[in-house]
Amino acid sequence: MRKQLTRIGVSLLIFGFRSVLFAQQNPTYTQYMYNPTTINPAYAASRESISIFGLYRNQWMGIDGAPKTANLGVTTPLQNSKLGLGVNFTNDHIGAMNENNIAVDLAYTVNLNAVYKLALGVKGNVNLLSLSYSKLNIYDQAGPFNYDDFSNKFSPNIGAGAYFYSDLAYLGLSVPQMFTVDYYDDVKRITMREYPVCYLMGGYIFDLGADWLLKPAFLSKISKGQTEMNVTANFLFQEKFTIGTSYRWNSSFSALTGFQIDSNWFIGYAYDFDTTKLNHYNVGTHELFMRFDWGGRWNSNTKSTRRFF
């Protein structure tokens, strides 16, 4: 009975019977700092190697229909230029809704002085949204609910971002999708709407000595008058082991870890513990990622700090 009530509750939360139905905004990541191109296209010009990134996030395990997100991204500098190129594919699955996003980023870096650089980027998005109303658990079978499933609703979008950085610090501002997108049924009685989201992020690396580095960082997410704040503290030991913690305001605590297997491969894991009332109905959120770096023009003084963000 409890599992069935939870399923109904989540279904109503995500697809409730309202005149306006809000689709999930951009997916949430705990370890966003290892592939920021998903939210800021300008980051693509800050990488000095070809980087391939894969992530899988299973949110609120134990709740039927809870979000599951997969991301695959590639960033690369373009030879003999200050340009960087990024490509990301994201699949976001929530209950009866399945959304695929394909994004291409192009960014350019300007050397402000010997220390600081500024990257500017643009993003082109294509969203394909599918919704199967038939998969919902309808609490009141006698109620007026007669909507047709739809598949791969197409919506293009554009985004932009700026990324100010050095070997020890960064500050980024971006809007990955600038335009509000509405999805209507045939008679326009129900709407799924995705609003633009503005991201502000930053971080700084402190050398603690004895082979330890500390990077405090933050990510602020603003959409339609609502703000979500995430603060993180990561420690890097001997350029190999990463441990840290994260707090998402009024939402969750997280434990983070990572390991540099060799000069190319890096793997990481995060566990989120929900601090809202949903923690009574789920066993946490698991997030696993892997990154492969190849080539590049790093030197011994910047390699470890650049990999830290």
Rank of each mutant, 00 (worst) to 15 (best):
I102N: 05
F17K: 15
F22H: 12
Q226F: 14
G159M: 00
L213N: 10
F309I: 02
N98R: 12
L13T: 13
S300D: 12
L213T: 06
G121L: 00
P41H: 01
S246P: 04
Q31M: 06
V283N: 15
A270W: 01
N40H: 03
S254L: 02
R306E: 03
A23W: 07
S254M: 02
T76H: 05
T109F: 04
T28D: 14
I14Y: 15
E194I: 13
I52N: 02
E99A: 15
N40R: 04
K240L: 04
A96M: 04
Q25R: 13
L236E: 01
R18A: 15
Q177T: 11
I205Y: 03
A270F: 01
F22Q: 14
Q226K: 15
V126R: 10
G225K: 00
G62E: 00
S252E: 04
F292G: 04
F22D: 10
G203V: 04
Y204H: 01
T28G: 10
S246M: 08
L173R: 09
Y281R: 04
K224P: 08
R297C: 08
T90C: 01
S46A: 10
N111L: 09
K153T: 14
I94S: 07
R193T: 09
Q238E: 10
L5A: 11
S300G: 05
G203H: 03
S246F: 05
F289L: 14
Y247E: 02
D207L: 07
L168P: 02
N301Q: 13
F309Q: 01
A70R: 10
V197E: 09
V115Y: 11
K277S: 10
F241S: 08
V20I: 15
N40G: 02
G209F: 02
Y184K: 13
W265S: 07
G209H: 03
D105M: 00
Y139K: 14
Y133D: 04
L12H: 15
D92G: 11
W249Q: 13
T227K: 11
R248L: 09
T180V: 03
G73E: 08
K153N: 14
L128Q: 08
I52V: 12
T90V: 09
G225L: 00
V231T: 12
T90M: 02
L78V: 13
L83P: 07
L21Q: 15
Q177K: 11
V283L: 12
D148L: 12
I261T: 02
H280L: 11
L5Q: 12
L200S: 01
S263N: 10
N113P: 04
P41M: 00
A270S: 08
Y139P: 14
S246Q: 10
V74I: 12
P36G: 00
T305F: 03
Y108C: 04
W249N: 13
S155A: 15
E194G: 12
D149P: 01
P216W: 07
S263G: 06
A23S: 13
T245W: 06
Y133F: 13
V126T: 09
F241P: 06
T242M: 14
N250Q: 13
N111C: 06
D64Q: 05
G268V: 05
G172C: 01
A217Q: 05
G9K: 02
V175R: 03
T285S: 08
S19I: 09
V115R: 12
S155C: 08
S49T: 09
V110N: 05
N230W: 07
T90I: 06
L208Y: 04
E228Q: 15
G95W: 00
V122I: 09
A169C: 03
S251P: 01
Y116Q: 13
Q238W: 05
Y43G: 09
L106H: 06
